[in-house]
Design a protein around this nucleic acid. Sequence first.
RNA 1: GGAGGAGUGGCAGAGCGGUUGAAUGCACUAGUCUUGAAAACUAGCAUAGUGAAAGCUAUCGGGGGUUCGAAUCCCUCCUCCUCCGCCA
Length: 426
Amino acid sequence: MLQVNFIKQNKERILKGLATRNYKEDSSKLIDSIIEWDDARKETQTALDELLAKNKLFSKEIGGLFKQGKQEDANSLKQQVDANKVKIKALEDDMRDIKDKLDNGLLQIPNVPHDSVPAGNTDEDNEVYKEWTGALPNLGEKALPHWELAKKYNLIDFELGVKITGSGFPLFRGQGARLQRGLINFFLDEASKAGYEEIVPPLLVNEASARATGQLPDKEGQMYYVEKDDLYLIPTAEVPVTNVYRNVIVKEADFPIKLTGYTPCFRREAGSYGKDTKGLNRVHQFDKVEIVQIVHPEKSYEVLETMLDHVANLLTKLELPYRILRLCGGDLGFTSALTFDFETYSAGQGRWLEVSSVSNFENFQSNRLKVRYKDANNKTQLAHTLNGSALALARIIATLLENHQTPDGIRIPKALQHYVGFDIIN
RNA sequence: GGAGGAGUGGCAGAGCGGUUGAAUGCACUAGUCUUGAAAACUAGCAUAGUGAAAGCUAUCGGGGGUUCGAAUCCCUCCUCCUCCGCCA
């Protein structure tokens, strides 16, 4: 969430940013309201503080008077305190009301897109940031999509997933399961080599955590919710891993903080039934290795580049053709200032599939998380947070199977052979 | 799930209705001393709101209540510890 002071000082910039996002609400009005509410908040607070200070003083006097045995004086003071208490109660009610409005208003304003974010509505308006310059695999007429390959080599059983749970919960078996496990280890090792600390977090989180990283209230319907215990199944490791630093004031010298974590991810994908749901293209449960960084505000865009390089390097080692998109305003996540998506070419389907999303949230997320540091003047400042998938498994398996299919079987890229324990699936 | 105990600043730990945002120790930061370091000594050292600042206000696990006044009393929730039960 944006800071109120930032909103006050940058109204035009925010409106321009919201336009880039193609934001539908009457944002100008909302921003004016927020500014009004905040002014009202300050005014009420000042009035309230004055009364509280008065009563505090009176109470001290009353204490003194009692000690001196001046009961009557004390009692008359008490009446004044009581009168003030009525006013205080009213102001406190006002305050709660104003704060609610202010908080709700702030929650409705998405992050301001970075200047480089192109205006646009849908994923068709995303800008190709880095094109694939090599040749795309041409497997001819015999190229199979991954769901057929999965069946042919008995790697993934979608029907069993349906039997056990429901659609969108694939079951991996045999070499398919091995491939899955190998990829996870490969991604984690690469992240460790790049200096990320490995975390094994809880897979269910409480409301405070989901709120802090911005899943709530924005994506409430997308998360599985365990009502009995009031917990959410994580839609990404970003939630528990970033929350490690919720409400923490870090030392400036500790930057950059780099964390990685492998977790299954659970997504209800409500509203997207029937769209791209074939095979592994869109599932309710998939595995992902996430990388997260908490950095000095001046460094975040530099760090974003290194994260892009990290993901690119993974895809290169997996010998997969990929391209990088810069998301347009309309496709940009609520909390993000700038997001790059990685897509790999899916040779069996003849289309590009999103396999990673790398974002800089600037201080939008840290403002809710309250991840801060002390600057040179010992003032508390918000850190910047970034994260990226490195990588999301399900679709990587899909493209891996499709791109590396040969008449003799599915070739395992060299970098991965050591992890899966075989060099071909047949 | 049942019974009991406990939650105070970065850590340890006092306070248990009155001027306490909170003793003391450790840690940390700066200074004095020293060739340098250590030790010793001196000072500083929570977060947030508001304000130009001084200051004022809130916060002693969270929320609510009693009281002129609450870290201290009451209610409730959460967390941790011990014991019993169950169990991967």
